Simulated scan of single mutants.
Amino acid sequence: MLKTLIIDDEPLAHQVIKHHLQGCDDISVLASCYNATEALRYLAQQQVDLLLLDINMPALSGIELLRVLHNRPAVIIISAYKEYALEGFELDVVDYLLKPVGAERLFAALNKVRRRITSTKLPAEPYIVLKVDREKRKFLLNNISLFEAYGNYVKVWQGEQMTLVNSTLKRLLQQLPGQQFVQVHKSFVINKDKVLAVEHELLRLDGEQQVKVGKLYKHRLIGLL
Rank of each mutant, 00 (worst) to 15 (best):
3 K>S: 15
4 T>F: 09
5 L>T: 12
8 D>R: 05
11 P>H: 10
11 P>L: 09
13 A>N: 06
15 Q>S: 13
17 I>D: 10
18 K>F: 03
21 L>P: 15
24 C>P: 05
29 V>C: 13
29 V>F: 10
30 L>E: 15
32 S>I: 02
32 S>Y: 00
33 C>Y: 01
38 E>A: 13
39 A>W: 02
41 R>T: 11
42 Y>M: 07
44 A>T: 03
44 A>Q: 13
46 Q>S: 08
48 V>R: 14
49 D>Q: 07
49 D>P: 04
51 L>Q: 12
53 L>C: 10
55 I>G: 10
55 I>F: 13
57 M>N: 11
59 A>V: 14
60 L>D: 04
60 L>E: 08
60 L>C: 10
62 G>E: 08
64 E>K: 10
66 L>W: 07
68 V>D: 02
68 V>K: 06
69 L>T: 02
71 N>F: 04
77 I>Y: 02
80 A>M: 05
81 Y>H: 15
83 E>M: 06
84 Y>W: 13
85 A>Y: 03
86 L>T: 11
88 G>I: 02
88 G>D: 06
91 L>T: 02
93 V>W: 05
94 V>F: 06
96 Y>Q: 02
97 L>W: 03
100 P>Q: 05
102 G>R: 10
105 R>H: 10
105 R>K: 14
105 R>Y: 01
109 A>S: 15
110 L>Q: 06
113 V>N: 13
113 V>A: 14
114 R>Y: 12
116 R>V: 12
118 T>Y: 14
118 T>Q: 15
123 P>A: 05
123 P>K: 09
125 E>D: 12
129 V>S: 08
131 K>C: 11
134 R>A: 12
138 K>C: 11
148 E>R: 07
152 N>A: 05
154 V>P: 03
154 V>S: 04
161 Q>F: 12
161 Q>D: 14
162 M>G: 00
168 T>P: 01
174 Q>Y: 02
176 L>T: 09
177 P>E: 05
178 G>F: 06
179 Q>F: 12
181 F>D: 02
185 H>W: 04
188 F>M: 00
190 I>R: 01
191 N>G: 07
196 L>A: 00
199 E>R: 12
210 Q>I: 00
211 V>I: 11
214 G>V: 01
214 G>A: 03
214 G>F: 00
217 Y>M: 03
220 R>M: 06
224 L>N: 01
